[in-house]
Simulated assay, not measured.
Amino acid sequence: MSIETILGAIVIGAVIGALGRLLLPGRQPIGWILTVVVGIIAALIGTAIAQSLGVATTNGIDWIEIVMQVVLAIVGVGAVAALRGRTRV
């Protein structure tokens, strides 16, 4: 893995995580680092699901893959926010 690949994953994860957090209604008690981590995980899982479903890789933007990633980020941010909200006293 090169440094460009790692930095690219962080940037894409930050964007996907931020979109997931913005589209989730209400306030989420999680920080930006956890949002980026959830975004990276959502991006990786979304890409794997898109590839297993046979979504074709195009020369342009793969909108179906991005929608999958953002939906997974919404679910992930919601789950992490719910877990963090319950554990706080």
Rank of each mutant, 00 (worst) to 15 (best):
S2C: 11
S2L: 10
I3C: 07
E4A: 15
E4L: 14
L7C: 08
L7S: 04
L7D: 05
G8S: 13
I10S: 02
I10H: 09
V11A: 03
V11C: 01
V11D: 00
I12T: 14
I12D: 02
A14N: 13
G17H: 10
G17M: 06
G17P: 07
G17L: 08
G17R: 12
L19Q: 08
L19W: 10
G20Y: 07
G20L: 13
G20D: 01
R21F: 11
R21L: 12
L22K: 08
L23R: 03
P25T: 11
P25W: 07
P25K: 06
P25I: 14
G26M: 15
R27L: 07
R27D: 13
Q28C: 04
Q28N: 05
P29L: 14
P29R: 12
P29H: 09
I30Q: 13
G31Y: 15
G31H: 13
W32D: 07
L34D: 10
T35N: 12
T35P: 07
T35M: 14
V36R: 00
V37Q: 13
V38H: 13
V38F: 07
V38D: 09
G39K: 01
G39N: 09
G39F: 09
I41P: 01
I41F: 11
A42E: 05
A42W: 08
L44Q: 12
L44I: 11
I45E: 04
G46I: 01
G46Q: 01
A48F: 12
A48Q: 10
I49R: 02
A50P: 04
A50Q: 00
Q51S: 05
S52P: 02
S52A: 12
S52C: 03
L53S: 08
G54Y: 03
G54T: 00
A56F: 11
A56M: 13
A56N: 07
T57H: 12
T57V: 12
T57S: 09
T58M: 15
T58I: 14
N59E: 08
G60Q: 15
I61D: 00
I64K: 06
E65K: 12
E65N: 08
I66A: 01
I66V: 13
I66T: 06
V67N: 03
V67Q: 04
V67W: 10
M68S: 06
M68P: 05
Q69H: 04
V70S: 04
V70C: 02
V70Y: 01
V71S: 10
V71P: 11
L72G: 01
L72T: 01
A73W: 01
A73C: 02
V75T: 03
V75S: 02
A79L: 15
A79G: 05
A79R: 04
V80T: 03
A81Y: 06
A82S: 05
A82P: 03
L83F: 12
R84W: 11
G85C: 04
G85V: 05
R86W: 14
R86H: 10
R88K: 03
R88V: 12
V89R: 06
